[in-house]
Measured scan of single mutants.
Amino acid sequence: QVALSRTQVCGILREELFQGDAFHQSDTHIFIIMGASGDLAKKKIYPTIWWLFRDGLLPENTFIVGYARSRLTVADIRKQSEPFFKATPEEKLKLEDFFARNSYVAGQYDDAASYQRLNSHMNALHLGSQANRLFYLALPPTVYEAVTKNIHESCMSQIGWNRIIVEKPFGRDLQSSDRLSNHISSLFREDQIYRIDHYLGKEMVQNLMVLRFANRIFGPIWNRDNIACVILTFKEPFGTEGRGGYFDEFGIIRDVMQNHLLQMLCLVAMEKPASTNSDDVRDEKVKVLKCISEVQANNVVLGQYVGNPDGEGEATKGYLDDPTVPRGSTTATFAAVVLYVENERWDGVPFILRCGKALNERKAEVRLQFHDVAGDIFHQQCKRNELVIRVQPNEAVYTKMMTKKPGMFFNPEESELDLTYGNRYKNVKLPDAYERLILDVFCGSQMHFVRSDELREAWRIFTPLLHQIELEKPKPIPYIYGSRGPTEADELMKRVGFQYEGTYKWVNPHKL
């Protein structure tokens, strides 16, 4: 086992960053958080920038500027975001240094004079007029057009580079997404736009490419001749908990499936790229999406959770019991969808996408189930092999396979070949997804960000279904809070070829 401390991990990262040409360590950078008073800024962006600063992973002359409508001070920003920093008493001095680099400007999102004030403020910072500028839009999409237009007109660096990070949702359907994309691309070049999907920053999602293309053993079996089906799962054990009003506007397909799960599907299904260059990788992902037809209604199961009468606390409440959810809402909190990649490698292999709230566990994984062994000599005792990439929690890679049961006879039983990170790298604290992705933006690497043509294809696949749901308002199937979801989803999976045995229990190697 390799035991690495946080300091050692960050030392390795620093070495990698400083050796590259793309990370300008000594240049002045300004990180501007648009929507600095909001939840995302408070819980994710400010803490992430602090962790990067604490670990010495930001360029040395980096300033952080918050911008929002609320009249706040840096002290206010500190008060609301610091509880999420997880700072230790030993880091007190470092924390003071961090907040000394912070400033805040209040202004409207659609007022040109406010942006001119913001620009004057940035120019007044040390070497601010020639600094590289990175704008993070932690804002609702309704203000994107006004904000990007004003940034472009008043706040661009004339000497350094300018980059803009856009948070999902990128529209509600193909038409609104196209409108937003066309607007942003009329102001910024594609190499300046970073559409963030934080799932692409997760260690195991990034590991998929290495697993596939750096190991000879997987190449020959990664196709329709050997793989019976692919299941991509995202499960949350909690409901909307008072935030249903926002969720109800989008629903589970827009929230998770059309982005996170579809991105994971691309990494499983794509061909080997010409290189690890950002556009070479994204070219292959677009090719996969172009091979997927629009979702067919007979390959869809929609569910909505109801309270568990035997549960406790939140578990007793259904989705419609959330006071922020519109009365009688038919918005799905669970969806199972089957897609097919219609190309030579994957023809006929079902890709089953499942996601839901208020389920029995927290889990995100990719599961490849292989065909049955031909010419069975073990009297149907063999179960199908599976390769599982567990994204969260407890990152893991393992192969479910058959071995001989101890004893006199040739009785096979299920076991696993474990390729888990935790076994080799004991207690290594890896940077989280937002840390990686923000560092990628500083480096100018777009590999783990969504390109406009990729986004367009993703919406093309799901828009007809979303429009049909909005028009017909089908009643989702009720499922109990804390269950596996509607049984109809299991029946759909069985119908397209997935075999669920229920006889195997994964042993978490992190707890051995």
Results as ranks from 00 to 15, higher is better:
454 E>N: 03
349 V>G: 04
300 V>W: 12
408 M>E: 04
323 P>W: 13
308 N>E: 11
357 K>W: 04
472 E>F: 12
256 V>N: 05
419 L>M: 13
375 G>W: 09
309 P>Q: 13
324 T>W: 08
268 V>F: 07
426 K>F: 09
355 C>M: 05
262 L>C: 09
445 S>D: 14
383 K>E: 15
395 E>A: 12
374 A>E: 15
367 R>Y: 04
495 R>H: 14
502 G>T: 10
328 G>W: 10
470 E>M: 09
315 A>M: 15
277 N>R: 10
473 K>E: 12
404 K>N: 02
483 S>C: 10
390 R>N: 15
309 P>L: 13
405 K>A: 15
487 T>V: 15
299 N>Q: 14
263 Q>R: 00
289 L>P: 05
446 Q>N: 03
409 F>D: 12
352 I>V: 11
277 N>L: 14
388 V>F: 02
409 F>I: 15
423 N>H: 11
385 N>A: 02
443 C>L: 11
254 R>A: 08
340 Y>F: 13
361 E>N: 08
451 R>F: 07
427 N>R: 07
415 S>H: 04
429 K>D: 10
351 F>K: 00
273 P>V: 00
388 V>G: 02
406 P>G: 06
319 Y>R: 01
364 A>P: 05
490 D>K: 08
291 C>E: 13
504 Y>C: 05
410 F>I: 15
377 I>Y: 12
276 T>V: 13
323 P>H: 13
495 R>P: 03
409 F>E: 15
362 R>V: 09
452 S>G: 15
288 V>H: 00
434 Y>F: 05
470 E>F: 08
343 N>S: 14
341 V>N: 03
429 K>A: 15
281 V>T: 09
355 C>N: 05
477 I>Y: 14
340 Y>G: 09
482 G>A: 08
322 D>A: 03
488 E>I: 10
405 K>Y: 11
320 L>R: 10
288 V>G: 05
457 E>F: 08
321 D>Q: 08
303 G>Q: 06
502 G>K: 10
302 L>S: 08
341 V>P: 05
329 S>Y: 01
262 L>D: 01
488 E>P: 11
261 L>R: 05
352 I>P: 00
471 L>V: 15
352 I>A: 01
316 T>A: 14
497 G>R: 09
288 V>C: 11
471 L>S: 15
382 C>F: 10
390 R>V: 09
321 D>G: 10
256 V>D: 02
460 R>E: 08
365 E>I: 06
357 K>Q: 02
311 G>N: 14
335 A>P: 02
474 P>D: 14
426 K>I: 08
351 F>G: 04
272 K>T: 05
456 R>G: 13
322 D>N: 05
372 D>C: 07
313 G>Q: 08
353 L>Q: 03
399 T>M: 12
328 G>L: 10
398 Y>E: 01
355 C>F: 01
419 L>P: 01
370 F>G: 03
284 E>Q: 11
379 H>W: 10
359 L>S: 06
271 E>P: 05
282 R>P: 02
502 G>S: 14
399 T>A: 14
325 V>N: 05
362 R>I: 07
279 D>K: 14
272 K>Y: 05
336 A>Q: 15
272 K>G: 07
365 E>L: 04
428 V>R: 12
496 V>L: 11
457 E>P: 01
321 D>C: 09
324 T>R: 09
410 F>K: 08
423 N>V: 12
327 R>S: 14
416 E>I: 00
257 M>L: 12
481 Y>M: 11
395 E>P: 08
300 V>P: 06
372 D>Q: 11
318 G>H: 08
368 L>Q: 03
450 V>F: 05
417 L>C: 05
342 E>M: 11
308 N>C: 13
373 V>P: 12
279 D>I: 13
483 S>K: 08
367 R>S: 03
295 V>L: 13
393 P>K: 08
308 N>F: 11
313 G>I: 12
451 R>H: 04
403 T>F: 15
379 H>F: 11
334 F>V: 02
374 A>W: 08
347 D>M: 10
360 N>Y: 03
396 A>N: 05
449 F>P: 03
336 A>E: 15
467 H>P: 07
446 Q>R: 02
447 M>N: 02
336 A>K: 06
479 Y>W: 03
274 A>E: 13
324 T>N: 08
399 T>H: 12
347 D>A: 09
346 W>E: 03
320 L>T: 07
258 Q>R: 02
384 R>P: 10
497 G>E: 09
321 D>H: 07
403 T>Q: 08
351 F>H: 02
267 L>N: 05
486 P>H: 04
271 E>C: 08
354 R>S: 03
427 N>G: 14
493 M>R: 07
397 V>L: 10
429 K>S: 15
314 E>H: 12
312 E>P: 10
370 F>E: 01
393 P>I: 03
469 I>V: 14
464 P>S: 13
330 T>I: 12
289 L>H: 06
469 I>M: 14
444 G>E: 08
374 A>G: 10
264 M>K: 04
260 H>C: 01
276 T>R: 11
501 E>T: 11
443 C>W: 14
448 H>T: 06
412 P>Q: 12
368 L>C: 08
506 W>T: 04
326 P>C: 06
377 I>H: 08
274 A>N: 15
286 V>I: 05
332 A>K: 00
361 E>L: 05
378 F>G: 04
408 M>H: 13
274 A>M: 07
430 L>F: 10
446 Q>A: 07
447 M>V: 09
323 P>T: 15
485 G>D: 00
477 I>F: 14
309 P>S: 12
379 H>N: 14
467 H>Y: 12
330 T>Q: 14
303 G>C: 02
334 F>D: 04
364 A>D: 04
350 P>Y: 00
